[in-house]
């Protein structure tokens, strides 16, 4: 399984996490290229359906990145995201799906190093887990 390269979708909030990614880039922090970032306005915009759709469409994992609690540009979008993701994970678990392929992380705009660290950690972990069995389940 060592040469398995996971595909990870990242939903990053425009105000913090996406900025942290820019910061990581500016300071040349190296991290694996497996995360495909999609800029969303706020982590609160991330509909659980997006996550499910990503997993069914072939993503091995999904990470939602938002501002730290209290920091959301739209007041409390991230808190809503947290609740939503918690529910999603519970449902996934009860359906026997790998709920640990969905990550939610708070990365503030000043935390470039944290962004790179999480990207490394996540890729490593998913690499270990192997391909997601949800991928391709769409057709079935």
């Amino acid at each position: 399984m060592s040469d398995f390269e996971p595909k990870i979708v990242g939903f990053f909030c425009n105000w913090c996490t996406a900025t942290a990614a820019d910061l990581a880039g500016t300071t040349r922090m190296q991290y694996p290229p497996n995360i495909r970032p999609i800029r969303v306005m706020c982590s609160g915009t991330v509909d659980p359906v997006y996550v499910i759709r990503a997993l069914l469409n072939g993503a091995d994992a999904v990470i939602v990145g938002g501002c730290r609690p209290g920091d959301c540009h739209y007041v409390s979008g991230n808190m809503k995201a947290r609740r939503r993701m918690a529910i999603l994970k519970t449902i996934m678990k009860s359906l026997g799906l790998a709920e640990d392929r969905v990550w939610l992380r708070w990365i503030s705009a000043a935390e470039g190093p944290k962004f790179a660290k999480i990207a490394r950690e996540m890729t490593e972990e998913i690499r270990k887990k192997g391909p997601s069995e949800m991928a391709g389940a769409w057709e079935a």
Binding site: V9, I38, V40, M41, C42, G44, T45, V46, D47, V49, Y50, R53, A54, N57, A59, H73, Y74, G77, K80, R84
Partner: peptide, 29 residues
């Protein structure tokens, strides 16, 4: 402010965010 919270809670899919609609996110995915 276009935060999109309404779109996520809408149970009937009646709300969309112009500039970041479901369609666009799905297409991006």
């Amino acid at each position: 402010q276009g935060c999109g919270v309404c779109a996520t809670v809408c149970p009937s899919g009646a709300t969309k965010i112009r500039g970041l609609s479901d369609k666009q996110v799905f297409a991006a995915l």
